[in-house]
């Protein structure tokens, strides 16, 4: 190995390699490193809650179907965006989002504040055939979500992996993940009671897909869509307070 580095020609190659890496990596380091030490980047809000297992399953379906390719979840600090979609997005709102789903393209509208805007029934009908409720829509149909039963047997693994990357799920939450996922979509069963106990009274516990007999992928996705922008009130509080930065006008 010594000989390898000592030969002149090799030394030249190695120095080129080192130079490229040194020159290229500095930009990434300077820009990204501070974001990991900053406390101001992500605001402290006490009421921020994690996704329930059912919502997390819905989020995974949102990722699986590539919804992020056409819908953003990031309202910029521009006047027209705030008026169209609601208070602009705060960093804290996606602090449990592994990975983030801010998106880069709005073929469809932004979804950061979609929660509670439409009824469950509207979402189900819209997902089965968007053009039934919005004739001009170009969104694909997602009928299979209503047909596929949700596989919630292994959700404990998902929560445990989320915990290992920093989401504060408790051991109790992980142990009860499957049960809670089932319970959140079946309010009349015993499994339902634990959900609000563990995730807060404000958690939506109901039949999301209109079919109480089965827990489907539709249940999970609608549960997720209905919580978008509802994990904390911080954005609404900030937009109401006087010292908030004003959105950039036109």
């Amino acid at each position: 190995m010594r000989e390898f580095f000592h030969r002149k020609l090799e030394r030249k190659t190695i120095s080129l390699v080192v130079a490229i890496v040194a020159v290229a990596s500095i930009g990434g380091f300077v820009e990204i490193a501070p974001l990991f030490t900053i406390h101001k980047t992500v605001e402290e809000v006490p009421d921020m809650r994690t996704y329930t297992p059912l919502e997390l399953a819905g989020r995974d379906i949102y990722i699986r179907e590539g919804c992020y390719a056409c819908h953003s979840q990031m309202i910029r600090t521009l006047r027209d965006e705030v008026e169209r979609y609601g208070p602009y997005s705060l960093a804290v709102e996606s602090k449990y989002d592994h990975p983030m789903l801010w998106g880069s393209k709005r073929t469809g509208p932004d979804l950061a504040r979609l929660g509670d805007k439409y009824s469950d029934a509207w979402h189900v009908a819209h997902l089965i055939n968007p053009r039934d409720v919005v004739p001009q829509s170009v969104m694909p149909k997602y009928g299979w979500l209503q047909r596929n039963e949700l596989d919630f047997s292994k959700l404990g693994l998902n929560l445990a992996a989320q915990r290992s990357v920093g989401v504060p799920y408790t051991q109790e939450m992980i142990d009860n993940a499957s049960k809670d996922a089932y319970g959140q979509a079946t309010p009349d069963t015993d499994a339902a009671s634990g959900v609000s106990e563990r995730y807060g009274e404000a958690t939506n516990v109901r039949v999301f897909d209109g079919d109480p007999a089965r827990v489907t992928e539709m249940d999970a996705l609608v549960a997720y869509l209905q919580i978008l922008g509802r994990l904390t009130d911080a954005a609404y509080k900030q937009s109401a307070s006087a010292d908030a930065p004003t959105p950039v006008g036109e």
């Binding site: 020159v23 500095i26 300077v30 820009e31 490193a33 501070p34 030490t37 900053i38 406390h39 101001k40």
Partner: peptide, 24 residues
């Protein structure tokens, strides 16, 4: 964290520039 955020930002904003000039 060993390094304070403000220090990092300060380094980024000042030395980054010197580095750029030196490299050019």
């Amino acid at each position: 964290m060993g390094i304070e955020h403000d220090t990092l930002v300060a380094i980024s904003k000042s030395w980054g520039l010197f580095y750029l000039i030196a490299l050019a």
